[in-house]
Design a protein around this nucleic acid. Sequence first.
DNA 1: ACCTGAACACCGTTCAAGT
DNA 2: ACCTGAACACCGTTCAAGT
Lengths: 194, 194
Amino acid sequence: MSPTGLDGLSMRALGASLGVDPTAVYRYFRTKDELLEALADAVVGGGGPHPETGTPRQRLRGMFANLRHTLLANPALTPVVVRRQPEGEGTWQGTENVLAVLREAGLSEQDTARAYQALLNYTLGHALLEAPYALMSAEEAEGIRTRVRAGLAVLPLDRYPHVSAVAAHLYTDMDSQYLYGLDLMLAALPIDSD
Amino acid sequence: MSPTGLDGLSMRALGASLGVDPTAVYRYFRTKDELLEALADAVVGGGGPHPETGTPRQRLRGMFANLRHTLLANPALTPVVVRRQPEGEGTWQGTENVLAVLREAGLSEQDTARAYQALLNYTLGHALLEAPYALMSAEEAEGIRTRVRAGLAVLPLDRYPHVSAVAAHLYTDMDSQYLYGLDLMLAALPIDSD
DNA sequence: ACCTGAACACCGTTCAAGT
DNA sequence: ACCTGAACACCGTTCAAGT
């Protein structure tokens, strides 16, 4: 099995694919980590003011689904982007946008901060969790989920009745799993009803 | 900086600390991954039937807070445990317990599966996210959070008014961040009121 | 100014050889 | 049955030397 993700990016492999000595890269980046940070910055870079429409909940839903999409656009870089300390235009603009929606929906400063953090941590954590799957082919990922469901369905019925009963509904696609959890959080936010 | 977490566990380092040739370990484990799986199994092992008390929400809260605690008890192993395919007594018993509470609280099979998945993904993702912090000293982790908050508070007020306003409430301790998000999800579950 | 190539201090893993 | 030690194919990184 050839290495995937970040393991596949070695300074030697990079040099080879550039047709250059592996150590030549050190003229431009002091360490491999610095190179990865630069790549992570490029991934995040895009975010403009991005005005979403609809109810507060719909706008928040769009913003975080969008963040998840950005994080998973280059799954090999997902861990690097997620662990990056928050900094840069894009990050701050994104934070400001979310906080504005929460605040204008009637949440207190405390609740705004807590809700933002909860939604952010959920999205970052979920991206970390699914990055390895995003790195494989769709068939490969589906194969794994199918195998897990089959394993669950075959458990002794007398000891694990509920697991057997709902096994077919578990380990579905990651998109709907993410959105279901996101909607739970959004539904519980103390947003003014109008 | 000496390597931390899994990077610190090399076959050579392991051999040295056992006072034995590095390759001797290969008599007992075929690969390093197999060794790590065995360690992950040991981490998960404990879970008995574990009857919690209180309302459904309280019981679910306890169960997932408990799972997070188990996952972070050995932060270096958190990624290994989280990515492990579900298997073994402990895992299945834990799943059965959660599903039972959800089902008995009046959720449909579909909703039971989806709610379980959402709570599980949130907890696994959050553990992945905070494992690096659990690996450092409490002072070190607090130092990082303080620095991030300070960075946020110092942003230009006219462009990021909401960020500046709530900066002091962001990046607090991980325990309350986790519990706040967990409570949001639990609050939104369609549980029978009695 | 930029690239090369040898070298250092590491990895995981294999395998013939020792006891 | 268990351990050793050399070896293979890798890493990230440094640095003197070349152009």
